[in-house]
């Protein structure tokens, strides 16, 4: 292998390492919300693999973070379709408020997320990761307006559930 190729491979390795490091927490959160507690690390590995395989085709037309979320979300939805990965479970967090202890916002949020279908969950998760509406729209392939309407509806539903449980 020529020195030029070796330098290119090394640069790609460093780029990938940085990418994983920068997005590790978000990828873990996404993996945990699209798989069972026993399975989320498998999904995380699958996300890493798909990111690595797709890295060469990243053309820079979207922001790097947007692209990472696209790959991760698409991988998560495909992973759910595989045998034995059909269910996702957030029960330990979701049931925290059942013993008479006042439920906190995050626990209720987990419960709320668990009850959503995978698409709605994606909209809310991307928002929670701090993405702008335009970025979420870019990840999902929708208009920013459609994302805004969905977000408003989801937040209202969550707020109503929170008030009900408060």
């Amino acid at each position: 292998m020529s020195n030029k190729n070796q330098r290119h491979d090394r640069a790609q390795d460093v780029e990938f390492e940085t990418l994983l490091g920068n997005n590790h927490a978000a990828l873990v959160r996404l993996a945990r919300h699209y798989s069972s507690p026993a399975d989320w690390q498998d999904l995380l590995q699958e996300m890493h693999l798909q990111l690595w395989r797709s890295l060469a085709s990243f053309d820079g037309r979207s922001a790097r973070a947007t692209w990472v979320y696209r790959v991760a979300l698409n991988t998560a939805l495909s992973h759910r379709r595989k045998p034995n990965h059909q269910h996702q479970s957030l029960e330990p967090l979701a049931e925290r408020g059942d013993a008479g202890v006042p439920i906190d916002e995050l626990s209720l949020l987990e419960k709320f997320l668990a009850a959503l279908d995978p698409i709605q969950r994606a909209v809310l998760l991307l928002d929670l990761e701090g993405m702008e509406r335009e970025q979420i729209a870019d990840v999902l392939g929708l208009s920013a307006n459609a994302v805004a309407i969905r977000m408003t509806r989801l937040r209202k539903a969550f707020e109503a559930q929170f008030l009900e449980n408060a």
Binding site: Q50, S54, S57, F58, W67, R70, V71, L73, N74, T75, L77, S78, A122, D138, V139, L140, G141, L142
Partner: peptide, 11 residues
């Protein structure tokens, strides 16, 4: 299905 595409295209 290219995973780097937007979700709708990917689906």
């Amino acid at each position: 299905a290219e995973p780097g595409r937007p979700l709708l295209d990917y689906l």
